[in-house]
Design a protein around this nucleic acid. Structure first.
Lengths: 364, 364
DNA sequence: CTGAAAGCGCTAACAC
DNA sequence: GTGTTAGCGCTTTCAG
C-alpha cells in the first residue's frame, strides 16, 4: 500500500477534457472568463476523475497557505482545550486550516523550532494560546527569528504593540471578594494558583487589594500557594485550617482547588455556606453538581479562542491588501460571577443560581 | 505589514555562498558528498541569512508532507482532549506535524470535505479520533473518495481490515460490576450513556450480562439513559430513586453522571458507601476529591493517542518502502478499576485507594 | 565532489 | 475565451 496517492493532477484533467491546464485552473477558481460549454465539460471531467487540486502547490505559488499555526499547552486540562475548541470552529468557518503544536510544558521557552516549523510551512498567522507562565515570554524581547508573520497571543500581560486576547482576571476576582463580603464573611483566606502564572498573580492581587481597602491586614498565614490541582488544594486548605482558625471563607484561584476545600469542609462537618463560604474560579462543567454547588467565575474561553482567530484573520487579510487594521490591538473579556450554594446563605435554601453580569455590578 | 515574508530562498543562499542550489540542498539534508570546506562555508551563510527551507516545496517534490491529519470532536470535554494531547506529543516526537479538524458534533457524517482537505494538503496519514456514535461510520461502507491514505481509528467497534485503537469498555464495566457484588451490593442500578454511542452500549452490556449471570432479572426501572452530562445524571438518579427503591448501588457510565448521584445521595442523607455504592467511569482528575471520593475506571486516553500515532507512522513508513506492516491491525487497551470510598466499605475508614489491575482480576 | 537541467502541481501574466 | 510561458522553492537525476 504505497503512500503515494495517484490522484489526478491538473495536467491529466486538462488532457482528458481537451483543454489547457489554465482553463482547468480557471474553472476550479470560478473565474468568469470561461465559456459555459467549456466550463461544463471541464466540470464533468473533474467530477469523473475526482480531481482535487493540491493546496500545497497553490500555497507555493500564491505565497499564501490559508493555514494558521496554533501553539497550546496543557491540553489535558479543560481550560486550554476549551480555548482550542473555539479556535477550531472559528478557523473552519474562516476557511483556514490549523497546524497544531502542544508545548511539553506551560513554561517552555524553547520556541525557535516551533517558529521555524511554522515559517517553513508558510503559515499565514500564528495564535499563541499558551498562558503567560514564568519566563515563557522572554523570547519576545529578542525574537529568535525576525517574524514577518502576524501573531496573536491569548492570556498574557499587556505589552506594547502586541495583539492580545485576554480575560480580566483581576475584575473577576474583585467580584468574588465583593460578593463574599456582601454575604457577611469577614476572614477570607486565599488559595492562589502557582505565582509564576500571570493569571494567578492577578487573582491574588484582587484578593489583597480588597482586603486592604477593607482595612484588613494581610498576614502570611492567610493564604497558601497551590498549583491548580485538587491535591494541592487539599494540602493548602489543611494548612489554612490550622494556621488561620478564624477563617470563615476561602477564595480559591480555581474550581479544582475549591473542590478540595469543599471536601475538607465536608470531612470536618463544617456547614457550607452557613459557617464557611467557598468560591472558585473557571466554572468547570461539574461545578454546579458539587455538594454544595460551587460559586465561581465564568470565563468564555471558547469565545476567546474564536476572537483570536477572527483577529488574526483580519490582520492577515489586511496585510494582504496592504491596508491597516484600525481597531484596538487587544481585547479584554469580562468574566461573570456565578453565585451558587457554596457562598450564598440565601441560595442554599432555594437551590438555584445567580449570575452576576459585571455590567450591573461594576457600573459599566 | 505584508504577510509575504521575505526570508531567503535556497537560490539566494546558493548565490551568497557561491555554490549551486544542489549543494545547499545537500548540506541541508546532511548528504555526505560535500567537501568539508564547502559545507562549512554554506553552513555559515545559512546561519547568517537565517535560511529555513520551505516544507511546502519539499513536500511537493517528495510527495511526502510529514503531516498527519487529525479529526476530533468535543474538545470541550476532557476525554477527547486527553487523547489529542497524547497525539500531539507522539507526533512531535515522530517528526510529524498535525493538521487538526474538530467536527461540529460527534455524530457528524459529513466527512467528504474533510477528507478532500486532507488529500489536498497531502497528509501522509489520518487519525480519526472521534468515538463511534450513531451513523458516524456509515461513510466507511462506501468511501466518498477512494482513500489511498492510511487511516487509524480510535474507539470504535472492530471492523474487518481497519486499524483501530480502542479500550475494552466491556471489560472495565465487568470489573465494576464484579467489585460491587463483592462489596455486598445486591440491587445495582445503571445510568447509561446515550445509547447511540458504541461505548455506552458496551458499558451497559456488561451491566446486563453480569446481572443475568447472577440470575437477576433486568427490569426497565433498573436503569435510565443519560447523555454523559452531570445534569442528565441528576435527572436519572431522581427517576431511579423513585422507581427502584430497593436499589443499593449505581453504576454510572461516566464520572460526571456519577457525581450527580453522589450529590443526590448527599442531599438525601444517604450514607455512601455504607448504604449505597457508587461507581463511575473515566477517572476525572477531580474524582479523587469528590466527597466521598469516587470509584471509577481508568482509561489511558493519552496513551491511546500515542499508540494511534505510532501505528499510523509505522504504516506510513512501511508503505514508503513498500513493505508490509506485519503486526495486528488493532490494539485494545485494558482499563483499570480504581476503588475509592464511594464503593468500598473498608476504604471509607482508611481513606486510601486501590487500583485493581485486570491482570490480577481476570486471570490474564 | 559539484553543477545543470528537469519537474513536483499549480497559477500569474501575457499573448492570441 | 483560451493557450503559452514562466516560475513558486525545492529535490532528483544525471553529467562531468
Amino acid at each position: 500500500m504505497p503512500v503515494k496517492s495517484n490522484r489526478p493532477t491538473i495536467k491529466q484533467v486538462a488532457a482528458a477534457a481537451g483543454v489547457s491546464t489554465q482553463t482547468v485552473s480557471r474553472v476550479m477558481n470560478d473565474r468568469p472568463d470561461v465559456s459555459p460549454e467549456t466550463r461544463e465539460r471541464v466540470l464533468r471531467v473533474i467530477n469523473e476523475m475526482g480531481y482535487q487540486p493540491s493546496a500545497l502547490a497553490r500555497s507555493l505559488i500564491q505565497q499564501r497557505s490559508y493555514t494558521l499555526g496554533v501553539v497550546t499547552a496543557g491540553l489535558k486540562y479543560i481550560g486550554p482545550s476549551r480555548t482550542l475548541s473555539g479556535i477550531t470552529s472559528a478557523a473552519e468557518q474562516a476557511g483556514y486550516s490549523l497546524l497544531l503544536i502542544e508545548l511539553p510544558s506551560f513554561d517552555s521557552n524553547h520556541v525557535l523550532p516551533i517558529l521555524q516549523g511554522f515559517i517553513s510551512r508558510h503559515v499565514d498567522g500564528i495564535i499563541w494560546a499558551v498562558q503567560e507562565v514564568g519566563q515563557n515570554r522572554d523570547w519576545l524581547k529578542s525574537p529568535p527569528v525576525d517574524l514577518e508573520i502576524p501573531i496573536v497571543f491569548l492570556t498574557m500581560e499587556p505589552r506594547e504593540g502586541i495583539s492580545i486576547i485576554s480575560v480580566d482576571n483581576y475584575l473577576g476576582s474583585r467580584m468574588v471578594m465583593a460578593h463574599l463580603f456582601e454575604q457577611g464573611y469577614q476572614n477570607i483566606g486565599h488559595i492562589s494558583g502557582p505565582l509564576d502564572w500571570w493569571e494567578a498573580r492577578q487573582r491574588m492581587a484582587a484578593w489583597k487589594d480588597t482586603l486592604k481597602e477593607k482595612g484588613i491586614a494581610i498576614k502570611e498565614n492567610h493564604w497558601v500557594e497551590g498549583n491548580w490541582s485538587a491535591s494541592s488544594g487539599a494540602r493548602a486548605i489543611q494548612v489554612l485550617f490550622e494556621k488561620y482558625p478564624e477563617m470563615d471563607a476561602v477564595f480559591a484561584a480555581n474550581d479544582q482547588m475549591a473542590l478540595s476545600v469543599l471536601q475538607a469542609a465536608c470531612a470536618r462537618n463544617i456547614r457550607v455556606p452557613q459557617d464557611f463560604g467557598i468560591v472558585g474560579f473557571d466554572n468547570l462543567e461539574e461545578s454546579p453538581y458539587f455538594c454544595p454547588s460551587l460559586s465561581t467565575v465564568q470565563v468564555e474561553q471558547q469565545n476567546m479562542g474564536k476572537a483570536a482567530v477572527e483577529r488574526i484573520v483580519r490582520i492577515i487579510e489586511a496585510g494582504w491588501q496592504n491596508s491597516e487594521v484600525n481597531e484596538p490591538l487587544s481585547v479584554v473579556f469580562k468574566p461573570t460571577l456565578v453565585i451558587r450554594e457554596s457562598s450564598s446563605k440565601q441560595l442554599i435554601q432555594e437551590k438555584k443560581e445567580v449570575i452576576t453580569e459585571i455590567i450591573n455590578e461594576f457600573g459599566g
